[in-house]
Design a binder for these strands. Structure first.
Lengths: 226, 226
DNA sequence: ATTAAAATATGATATTTGTCATACTTTGAA
DNA sequence: TTCAAAGTATGACAAATATCATATTTTAAT
């Protein structure tokens, strides 16, 4: 069982506030998992009973809408925590978490986390700030969905994907989503998403290399996203 | 200066965890305001430096989108707190708060609130749960915006308004929004909103009494909202 | 009471987006 | 290697929604 002291998650997340003792205690009760691309970490409605630390790999948080489509609410990357909201609210998960790449995660039981809250003020302040950040993002995201066109949202999302997950040597986005998933992020039909990608391709703002996408003209794309 | 002990806000909000001593201290440093319908409590981008307790009156939280329209992100009613997120994040407000009715609010300075966080664990846990609830709502709201049609969102919103703010003797919604504001809630053009209201009126699901709206057939409306 | 401004309503039309059909391409399993 | 399934692409069309114009009603200021 590896120690938590050197873990990437500790460096980037609220966990950086934990003391050595607390870290040892955590290392002691954590469970490590390997999750294959496409597998589910937890499902909307499920009781999670703890939080997951993302050591490696990206996952999508989705919600099934009434029309049967999966809306991708957010993407979570290494160094971040999963399931904080439902652990704190002591409620079932509101979103499903599905691996977009092979992942390594650690699970920390709820009781442990709740103890840290009462023991360590800085930790609970950090968690609170994280959730406040999530709330701000969610509000902004909502306004985007309500007020922007599909094309604007697509441009915005492509820039976000490059900024957040980087690009390969051939300039293609490192995080490769299917067209259906990309459509699920911007909240539109898969065909509409494909059509708009073609359009951006023809206009020279992006390049489609097989299923991969490369951004060619950031400025125009940014202006398009408004 | 009135005491905080009996205040409605204390009964319904995270503040219920505060001790008598803490309440006295709070009563001591709070400022009471009267805000007229249409006036702004704080503006997006402004530094708030504390939280507002809503004693009376409803306000809207809005965000100006790139196309110049005000999106109503949420409504806040008596007993709730305003500005928690920006106080905790120590960031400027992400949303503007504008009174929909004459309001009575109290302002509690940031320092005071942050002290309670470190002193009173139950209080910070309460705040955390509130914000987690807001996050869940925001995520759900976002999925609605992305996946539902304008008509579905209108039906959903009308039911929400009746459930949350109640109705008058003539069955009209107690909280009276202008058509423009209603459009701003569901994220559509004012004309589209008016048109759909007419349609629901003709179909007998609602009744338009001047500018007021009465729900006639909850079940059909609920089915329409999916 | 009068009147200008704002809010509500509705028609005509353009634009955006979704849906269905179909073809092509890639992927992965037998 | 081959083939079926999944993913990507595109056309045709329908439906939803926005925009602009204009009429009517309500509100509020003088």
């Amino acid at each position: 069982m590896s120690k938590c002291e050197q873990c990437i998650v500790r460096q980037f997340s609220s966990l950086k506030a934990l003391t050595k003792d607390e870290l040892l205690k955590m290392a002691d009760c954590k469970t490590s998992y390997t999750i294959k691309k496409g597998e589910t970490i937890f499902e909307e409605g499920e009781t999670t009973n703890g939080i997951y630390c993302i050591k490696d790999g990206v996952c999508k948080m989705t919600k099934l809408s009434a029309n049967g489509k999966d809306q991708i609410v957010k993407l979570v990357k290494p160094g971040e925590l999963l399931g904080q909201r439902s652990t704190i609210s002591e409620e079932p998960a509101n979103l499903s978490a599905v691996a977009l790449e092979d992942m390594e995660v650690c699970f920390i039981p709820k009781n442990e986390v709740l103890q840290f809250f009462t023991q360590n003020n800085q930790f609970s302040m950090n968690v609170m700030k994280t959730i406040c950040g999530d709330l701000k993002e969610a509000d902004d995201h909502m306004v985007s969905m309500a007020q922007k066109s599909v094309k604007e949202r697509l441009a915005e999302t492509l820039l976000y994907l490059e900024d957040t997950f980087g690009k390969n040597d051939d300039n293609t986005l490192k995080l490769q989503l299917s067209r259906e998933e990309l459509a699920g992020m911007i909240g539109t039909a898969t065909e509409s998403c494909i059509r708009l990608l073609s359009e951006l391709n023809k206009a020279g703002l992006i390049e489609l290399i097989g299923k991969k996408i490369a951004i060619k003209d950031r400025n125009k794309l940014r202006r398009m996203a408004e």
